[in-house]
């Protein structure tokens, strides 16, 4: 019972949505399902947010290692909830849009969350450098091919690529690095992308069928 009804819901909803693709008047089901998802997700957030509060509150109450950071997290979370729920500082008051510029909620987004976000994203530059360094020590054929392709594309996007190979005569212009980079992008790269994407879609089809037929259901838990 605890697994049968969810299985029934899963199969019915999935099948109906597959069918809805072919029936023009049923296409709005897809939109409805997506709205249902949004609503369910926000209810689920009460569980997630609750979990966040519980985990950090426990750390604080037990004074376990790093509890002081948990205080900071809880404070940050609480401040956002209060400023966002009551729309404090919103020029249009409680009726104003949450993304209204000037509200405390948006100020915190702009001056705290946004720089943190951009900087974390920017750390990628360091990581891309360390990953490239490791790739330079390519040990086998596959890694060497990856490295060479990456190097040509990288060089092709810089002025250095032009400078290095502009001496190559026009009839062999394809060998000039920028042209070679374009060729790699448009031919072998495209071929690889296509094989990956066709494979992925077939993988999704077989997995979706396993889910709809109830063969794969570990995520629904057991009968307990």
């Amino acid at each position: 019972m605890k697994r049968q009804i969810p299985m029934l819901i899963l199969s019915a909803v999935g099948t109906l949505l597959v069918v809805s693709v072919f029936i023009p008047s049923a296409r709005h089901w897809q939109e409805d399902a997506s709205l249902y998802f949004d609503i369910i997700a926000v209810f689920a957030f009460f569980l997630g947010g609750g979990n966040l509060i519980r985990v950090h509150a426990e750390k604080v109450s037990r004074k376990s290692a790093g509890w002081i950071y948990s205080v900071v997290t809880l404070l940050g979370f609480g401040i956002m909830l209060v400023t966002g729920l009551f729309k404090i500082g919103n020029p249009n008051g409680i009726a104003g849009d949450i993304s209204q510029a000037g509200s405390y909620f948006q100020l915190l987004f702009q001056y705290v969350m946004s720089p943190l976000n951009s900087t974390m994203y920017a750390l990628l530059a360091f990581y891309v450098a360390s990953a490239s360094y490791r790739a330079f020590r390519a040990k086998n054929t596959e890694a060497t091919i990856l490295l060479v392709a990456a190097f040509v594309i990288l060089l092709g996007r810089t002025a250095l690529g032009v400078l290095l190979t502009n001496w190559i005569p026009a009839q062999f212009s394809v060998l000039q690095v920028p042209n070679l980079a374009i060729w790699i992008m448009n031919a072998p790269n495209l071929a690889g992308q296509r094989a990956i994407m066709i494979g992925i879609s077939l993988g999704v089809i077989s997995m979706s069928l396993r889910l709809l037929l109830g063969i794969e259901r570990s995520y629904l838990g057991g009968d307990n």
Partner: peptide
């Protein structure tokens, strides 16, 4: 949060 709920079911099972 939804992933949290589903992952818990999965691991518990």
């Amino acid at each position: 949060s939804l992933v949290m709920t589903a992952a818990r079911e999965t691991i518990k099972h």
